[in-house]
Write a protein that binds this DNA or RNA. Structure first.
Length: 852
RNA sequence: GGGCGAUUGGCUCAGUUGGUUAGAGCGCACGGUUCACAUCCGUGAGGUCACUGGUUCGAAUCCAGUAUCGCCCACCA
């Protein structure tokens, strides 16, 4: 077969499996088990991610309980502590995945901090550097004052919050350099504390209110700094006072404006967002305390013009929730524009497909508006950036494990070089995952065999974080798209539709569900009724449904195994297949075809519905009930009995094969039992996990049609029983007035199945005599029950309702057929189908009226 | 401020390129001690497919607009 490689996000090494992981694993495991059964050369590399910022967050909390901190331990001891911690937690995810049935290649387990990953990181970065796609420079980046590191745009989450907007007076400078108490420019700000770093005031060039101020200076309160008043198109005249204070070191817009006007940037907050020595008297204060004191002092001085609530957008650290801070610092960046262009083309030109397709637009929009990626982090746990500085300021990037031998520019020996202390954003190594786990950059056999991968699957929430990065880095590093298809599943919501979250306390623990209802039931519940990209609510009812289904399978198999005929010799004397047997085979053929098509199209929800229906409705409710007849009736020959049982067992084997990808545990166990009962039933395939996917076979249209008639009769009679209020245990005599000899013949062959299923005995065909009020219209003709209690009650009303229903359908069909537009334009097959329908409806109507 | 998605019986969702009478599970009602299964079996009730208009012989499905809910993106003090 072909190679079939799947990729899922490696979970965080310090974490436990949550329900989202369970969904991811279930989807991919279903696909990979299916392809394994198809004979494809499958690969699923399992593993964990070092998750630098998340792991540090966890460890920091842990060591805090021990009275330690990052600062008290220092880098080296902190990292030792981390490795020790990791050793305790790194196997957890794997064990939990196995309990879910994840059939990954466990002997290939990887970690984003292992040597293979480390090497891939170095090589990838060096190649980016050599290609001119890496630069290091000062920029205003987003900083978390609690995590004490830069965070990317994606990790800085924006929320609407109500804050305050203050209007402050900056007095204008008089010729003698002192502030004019009677002349000022008022500026509006939501962050008064940043005024300590103001280096200008800006107005719109066309704003007549301020035209004469441009070129003059205002005096910054408290610090006395001279602030030039500049004109810039960026200023919105309608907002606030139309004049804006400029704090280049603490605001993105101001930073851009300052660059245009050559204004200095003054950093006034330290890494923990406390006012630094540039803040004069306010130095040492926390940003919010400084804000409070500044506002009070402005108010006291009469320079606070206004103060009002204000709806605004606040950025917070995705990890810890702290309000992030724009911070001027030196960082490493990756120039992603050229990478993004390629990654976009891969999708727009169809080399990689995203499911559902609408996410291709989301992906495209992001790729088209992408900013350079700040990849350096001021953290310790992660891959240290492989860049070395020499005393002369030269930078050497090396992909060697031990670093460069000498400065690339001046040749100073390695001993005089010092390595960059920053580490990489976790997503840099994650972005290499599809190929770093296959031996890249070496041309290993695995790489040749399994790369590019087939299906990458994850939640849509990390489309940008991870998928986009893998696309960009994969194309750059390997020259090819890392995967053919990106399957994005939805988020799992709590019962009421709320988002799940640890803080909300409404998380579902997949392992306790496995404990309670079994992995198969959980897997079924996760996949049934789902479609890519759509959030799904995991309700108790759905979980119970999964549990009931696996119980049902178990019981069906128990029945089959327990009813094996004891007469061994009979097995060699095959009898002619009965109608139920032929019908079952046809239904299974249909299910195989549909399940195959659905799995090939990654329609997991459709596949789950297909196997559920064929197993429960077709196999259990209809086939097994009829099989009981032939297994138990006294006049059946041993050969007939053996044939029926064989069909039941073979049918079960097909059901097990079909269901195995989704429900591996139950099906595997039943497969073993089936193999023990009769080895050839399992085709000499000792393990279902490596057994073949069922082969396609032909439908038996005749059997399906004949069976449908029989089933309609059975349903009709059951209906009569209910309407007539005949107790379920009571046998009732049935009369069927067949319309012709063909109908009678067709019916005779099926009578023995009708008896127990409709609990009708005896059954007379074409018996003359009175018809009761209560009659069922069946494909064979009118049918009624002979029972003392039959008839009466609401039957008349029921019949009238049914007649009305038929009339309304007739009306529609007649109108359709009478319309020349329809018969003229609609395809012949559609027209003829309507004609048949008309005839059928008229016949049913005739029957019903005849009994009136 | 942009963009996207959802809206189908009480609930959770299916519904393939427009074409039989819109399906399933749960819930509900009624009936069941049928020897695989009450985690089950049978029967049934329940839907103007959010709304308005359009295209078409024909619309849950395509188009336009509206409403409600949700999500994503976005540097406005």
């Amino acid at each position: 077969g072909d190679s079939y490689t799947i990729v899922i996000p490696p979970p965080n090494v310090t974490g436990a499996l949550h329900i989202g992981h369970a969904l991811t694993a279930t989807i991919e495991d279903t696909l990979i088990r299916y392809h394994r059964m198809r004979g494809d050369d499958t690969l699923w590399v399992p593993g964990v991610d070092h998750a630098s910022i998340a792991a540090q967050f966890v460890l920091d909390r842990l060591i805090a309980e021990e009275g330690e901190s990052r600062a008290s331990l220092g880098r080296e001891r902190y990292l030792e502590r981390m490795w020790k911690f990791i050793d305790e937690t790194r196997d957890v995810i794997g064990r939990q995945h196995r309990r879910l049935g994840a059939s990954a290649d466990w002997d290939r387990e990887r970690f984003t901090m292992d040597e293979g990953s480390a090497r891939a990181v170095r090589v990838a970065f060096k190649r980016l550097w050599d290609a001119g796609l890496v630069y290091r420079g000062e920029a205003l980046v987003t900083w978390c004052p609690r995590c004490l590191t830069t965070i990317s745009d994606l990790e800085n989450v924006h929320r609407d919050e109500t804050g305050t907007i203050w209007t402050i007076r900056y007095h204008l400078e008089r010729p003698d350099g002192t502030p004019d108490p009677d002349a000022w420019v008022a500026v509006a700000t939501t962050r008064p504390e940043t005024m300590l770093g103001d280096t200008a005031v800006a107005v719109h060039p066309g704003d007549e209110r301020y035209g004469d101020l441009v070129g003059r200076h205002a005096i910054l309160p408290f610090l006395g700094r001279r602030l030039p008043i500049v004109a810039d198109e960026q200023v919105d005249r309608a907002f606030g006072t139309g004049a804006v204070k400029i704090t280049p070191a603490h605001d993105q817009d101001d930073y851009e404006l300052a660059k245009r006007h050559g204004l200095p940037a003054i950093t006034i907050l330290d890494e923990q967002a406390r006012v630094n020595e540039a803040g004069g008297a306010f130095a040492g204060l926390d940003r919010y305390e400084a804000r409070r004191q500044l506002v009070e002092r402005l108010r006291a001085a009469g320079d606070l013009e206004d103060e009002r609530p204000h709806e605004m957008v606040v950025g917070r650290c995705d990890r810890c929730g702290t309000v992030s801070e724009p911070r001027l610092s030196v960082q490493w960046f990756i120039r992603v524009k050229p990478l993004a262009e390629r990654a976009l083309a891969s999708v727009t030109e169809g080399r990689t497909t995203i499911l559902p397709a609408r996410f291709e637009k989301v992906y495209a929009h992001w790729m088209e508006n992408i900013h350079d990626w700040a990849v350096s982090r001021q953290l310790w746990w992660g891959h240290r950036i492989p860049a070395w500085f020499c005393p002369d300021g030269h930078v050497t990037v090396s992909d060697l494990a031990d670093g460069p031998e000498a400065c690339a520019e001046c040749g100073r020996p390695s001993g005089e070089l010092t390595q960059e202390t920053d580490i990489f954003d976790t997503w840099f190594s994650s972005g290499l995952w599809p190929f770093s786990t296959l031996g890249w950059p070496d041309p290993t056999p695995d790489y040749a065999r399994f790369y590019p991968t087939t299906v990458m699957e994850t939640g849509y929430d990390i489309l940008f974080f991870w998928v986009a990065r893998m696309m960009m880095l994969g194309l750059f590093c390997t020259g090819t798209e890392p995967f053919e298809t990106v399957y994005l599943h939805g988020m799992i919501r709590a019962e009421g539709g709320a988002k799940m979250g640890k803080t909300k306390g409404n998380t579902i623990d997949p392992l306790s569900l496995v404990e309670e209802i079994g992995a198969d039931a959980l897997r079924f519940a996760l996949v049934a009724g789902s479609s890519p990209g759509h959030d799904l609510k995991l309700t108790r009812a759905k979980l119970d449904g999964g549990r009931n289904f696996s119980t049902k399978l178990w019981n069906a198999a128990r029945f089959v195994l327990a009813n094996r005929p004891t007469d061994e010799a009979a097995a060699d004397m095959p009898a002619e297949a009965s109608l139920p047997v032929r019908w079952l085979r046809s239904r299974l053929a249909d299910a195989v075809a549909r399940a195959t098509r659905q799995l090939d199209a990654l329609d997991l929800g459709g596949y789950a519905a297909t196997v559920y229906d064929v197993a429960w409705s077709d196999y259990c409710d209809w086939f097994l009930e009829m099989a009981k007849v032939d297994l138990r009736r006294a006049d059946a020959s041993p050969a007939e009995r053996a044939t029926t049982w064989r069909a039941a067992a073979e049918g079960l084997a097909v059901v097990l094969r079909l269901l195995h990808p989704l429900m591996p545990f139950v099906t595997e166990e039943l497969w073993q039992a089936l193999g023990e009962a009769e080895p050839h039933l399992t085709d000499g395939e000792p393990l279902l996990i490596t057994a073949r996917w069922p082969a396609r076979s032909d439908r038996d249209e005749a059997a399906e049609a004949a069976f449908a008639d029989l089933a309609a009769l059975i349903r009709g009679v059951r209906n009569l029983r209910t309407e007539a209020g005949i107790p379920a245990a009571t046998w009732a005599a049935l009369v069927v007035d067949t319309s012709g000899p063909d109908g009678a013949n067709a019916l005779r062959g099926g009578l023995r199945y009708v008896e127990p299923l409709a609990r009708a005995r005896p059954i007379e065909i074409d018996a003359a005599g009175d018809r009761p009020e209560l009659v069922a219209a069946t494909p064979f003709g009118a049918a009624w029950l002979r029972v003392d209690a039959a008839g009466k009650s609401e039957s008349g009303g029921r019949r009238a309702a049914r007649l009305a229903e038929i009339e309304s359908h007739l009306e529609r069909v007649r109108r359709l057929l009478a319309d020349p537009g329809f018969s003229g334009r609609a395809p012949e097959s559609v027209v003829s189908r309507e004609r048949e329908r008309l005839a059928e409806l008229e016949e049913r109507r005739r029957q019903l009226i005849a009994e009136g």
